[in-house]
Design a protein around this nucleic acid. Structure first.
Lengths: 153, 153
DNA sequence: ATTGCTGCAAAACGTTTGCACCTAT
DNA sequence: ATAGGTGCAAACGTTTTGCAGCAAT
């Protein structure tokens, strides 16, 4: 199981922060880290419910925040007022380009961005927590764009 | 009135897109462009309502989107699932740093970012629509941070 | 005259909360 | 034993929608 390491990280985090270690929290963790791509909290809750999980909506929302706090997940906003989560586990830092036509999300990395958030924080006398760099754009290949229209992100 | 130019831009946009030119839309435009700082749609609606405006909530939401389309406003998301708007009129491009402790929003510009969104779009074969670069951080000056806590953004 | 826009209220949506019960510590 | 977590449903705040009447074209 590749999630043994994650389980240990989560367990240690819960212990340190004096949060209780419950089976429900680990169940949410399994589903969240196993999710392929970006997902909303409610989306994950529905998926778990459909898999006959008995974990409640409140617990899903609550646990996802804990997973963000211990850095196993990233929380993102792609401009549609829904919080989306994404596994950080064994993944490198990246940013996002969102197609304004079809909603498709493309991940990219650009070396020119390296160190910029840190440097801006330093200039402004802030301690960096996180940053988000989202590009909203239209695909030039209209056929490809249409193709994505009815797919999940 | 400094908004004559804006009024002309909005009027031409409405005409071109075959949207009707109504007094309500211009009333929303006046309030939106006159707002000092970032505001949510409902916030603007309440403000207008308190100023005895008769414009409805639906019209406010609708018109703000039109103002974004014609580039008089920018629509932003600072990670709290509320769409916030900001006047583009006679303002230069800038990005945002949000204090995760008190919610204070600081605007900054950084020359190193210039051209990066355009260049990434070019590489990925997309046409740039807009981008958002948000930094989430903590103020090192705790007193200043506290000071902002109960101020509007 | 014909659409599209408006106001209003209600619904929808994602998210949070209140409460009684349960369980990890 | 007891603080804290859970499930459930109801409440919440923001945004969208349905509809009848109105007004810009």
């Amino acid at each position: 199981m590749k999630n043994e390491k994650a389980e240990e990280i989560f367990r240690n985090f819960l212990k340190e922060e004096k949060n209780r270690i419950t089976p429900e929290r680990f169940e949410v963790m399994e589903y969240a880290l196993g999710y392929d791509g970006h997902f909303g909290a409610d989306e994950l809750f529905i998926k778990m419910k459909n898999s006959k999980s008995r974990v409640s909506r409140a617990t899903v929302y609550n646990t996802l925040e804990l997973l963000v706090q211990c850095n196993l997940l990233s929380k993102r906003n792609f401009g549609d007022n829904i919080s989306r989560y994404e596994s950080n586990f064994k993944r490198q830092q990246h940013d996002h380009l969102i197609c304004v036509e079809c909603g498709k999300i493309i991940e990219f990395t650009d070396a020119r961005l390296t160190g910029i958030p840190e440097s801006i924080c330093k200039d402004l006398n802030f301690d960096l927590d996180s940053y988000s760099f989202n590009i909203f754009a239209r695909c030039r290949n209209k056929k490809a764009c249409k193709k994505y229209r009815n797919e999940k992100n």
